[in-house]
Design a protein around this nucleic acid. Structure first.
Lengths: 175, 175
DNA sequence: GCCCGATATCTCGACGTCGAGGCATCCCGG
DNA sequence: CCGGGATGCCTCGACGTCGAGATATCGGGC
């Protein structure tokens, strides 16, 4: 880990672990084109680090990362901060079993309530409590603060371009 | 999900889910600067989709994603395909308890062996078996094939720029 | 009005990860 | 040569997720 650059995607700047990974594969499997790893391994690895950083940031608020995922989806849906479990699992990319479990525990903590949906008796309406909303707002601010620091090394127009590239990749999955 | 663009980071191309998330926050919390989410939410969300896609690709090879993580680190380390558990956990960003558990099961499957290290009796040497190496090679090829498709929408120079931006963010964590 | 495929949610057992703690070993300074 | 902190790995219980299946309900077609 952390070796010197050996043919990374740009000539300047320090090396990251992915440079090492790519260089190793080029040595071991010169028959393969491992260029895709330059992008996608970095995405995965960066996400992994972000998860760890987020976990730490939320812990100070007394929140788990998965709790924020749910609360924030409800919060940003706007007044009356009410969604169905189905909405929530599409928003957070987890399975229905996982969502049921999450909602159980968030309801126990008093951060949301469940009630029967009026016009579809299969459905449930999940509503943020005042305390849930407060925590979501507070955690969002902490999250943004931390993330702003992480992005400090990129200029505004660079961030825009980066976001645009990522969006083009995302659309393949979500388009 | 999947609403029309409402001020995303570029004016063209379809909208992704993050556009919806950002637009929702701007409506609900106009007092906050949520621009960091344009980049970092996309990173997380893309990584989540990649995980799911990888899981499927590896399943066809009879491999779990976490198994590939370990085997590939050993494979690319080169002959004699031998690392310590400590090397491996740094490479894969998991805890030591997790790595012990992974090595147990990979050894059971006959994909690697453990032996005492000669000059440090605390340490262990983990070595890839022939079958382990075969599986790692085969899975890497499948992985690259899938990832190449995902990146097909970006030109070579765009991929290089994207990789360079990501690297600058990664260096903050790994530099 | 009834059937049937689709939909919404929940149940539950298997599984992988975390994190704190334990133990043996190493290494450095005195 | 010895003590003590650092290091390398493992143990183990708690926890969150998955995934397949169960249940209840909805909605369109006839």
């Amino acid at each position: 880990m952390g070796q010197r650059s050996a043919g990374g995607s740009d000539g300047v700047g320090g090396a990251d672990d992915v440079d090492g990974v790519v260089a190793a594969w080029r040595r071991e499997r010169p028959d393969l084109d491992v260029a895709p790893l330059e992008v996608l391994s970095r995405v995965s690895r960066l996400a992994r680090h972000l998860d760890i950083a987020r976990r730490r940031a939320f812990a100070e608020q007394g929140l788990e990362a998965w709790e924020f995922d749910v609360l924030s989806a409800l919060r940003r849906s706007g007044d009356p901060y009410r969604l169905t479990p189905g909405d929530l699992l599409r928003e957070t990319l987890v399975t229905s079993g996982t969502m049921t479990n999450r909602l159980d525990r968030l309801a126990e903590r008093g951060l949301l309530t469940r009630q029967a949906a009026p016009h579809d008796r299969r459905a449930v309406l999940v509503t943020l409590t005042q305390e849930g909303r407060r925590l979501a707002d507070q955690a969002l601010e902490a999250l943004l603060e931390g993330e702003r620091e992480l992005l400090a090394g990129l200029a505004t127009d660079e961030r825009s371009r980066l976001a645009a590239y990522l969006k083009r990749l995302l659309v393949d999955f979500e388009g």
